[in-house]
Computed example of a mutant assay.
Amino acid sequence: MHALIIDDSRTMRIILRRILGDLGFTTAEAGDGQQALDAIAAGPVPDLCLVDWNMPVMDGYTFVQRVRANAEHRNITLMMVTTESSHGHVVKALAAGAHEYVIKPFTPEAITEKLELLGLVRNGVPA
């Protein structure tokens, strides 16, 4: 499975890349939502996007809306991974089409658990 990590923090991208790599995912990275849309258009289309909310150029919420507006990309699993912890942000992201929501800071186990709930990981390996 292929994942796209979308976060303006290089450190956070490294952390998530390691977690996903340990689970057997191949990964690509983008520093904002627009870079991520460009990467999806160039291919390969990811199975999973881990999306930060607060980024320059295009935030994660707008990215989720844009992906969901494109019928060709509706099968991409979207998981918000962000510091935005208010109930309103969670509801807004899920209503826009995110499948899951993880609040930073997180543990590798929390990411793995969410991916298991989404059916993307079974027993620590991609499904």
Rank of each mutant, 00 (worst) to 15 (best):
F63V: 09
Q65T: 13
F63A: 12
D32Y: 02
E72Q: 13
R68G: 09
L37R: 10
A41H: 09
R68F: 01
M79Y: 03
P44C: 04
Q65L: 14
M79S: 02
L48D: 01
A28W: 06
Q65V: 14
A71H: 14
A41W: 00
H73Q: 13
L50E: 02
Q65I: 11
R74W: 11
N75A: 15
G43V: 07
V64K: 03
P46R: 02
T62G: 08
G43Q: 11
L50R: 00
A36N: 07
A39I: 01
C49Q: 06
A39L: 05
L48Q: 06
D47I: 11
A28P: 05
M55H: 00
A41K: 10
I40Q: 08
M55S: 03
T62P: 05
V64R: 03
V45N: 01
D47Q: 15
F63L: 15
A42C: 08
N70K: 14
F63C: 09
D32K: 01
R68L: 03
N54R: 12
A30P: 01
G60N: 04
D59A: 12
T77M: 01
A39Q: 10
Q35R: 06
V57F: 04
N75E: 14
I40H: 10
T77L: 07
A36M: 05
N70D: 15
V51T: 12
G33V: 09
P46N: 05
Y61S: 12
I76V: 10
R66W: 04
M80G: 06
W53P: 07
R74S: 14
F63Q: 02
D38I: 04
R68N: 11
P44E: 11
V67H: 04
V57L: 01
Q35T: 11
D38F: 06
R68T: 07
A39E: 13
V57T: 11
G31D: 05
D52I: 00
R66N: 11
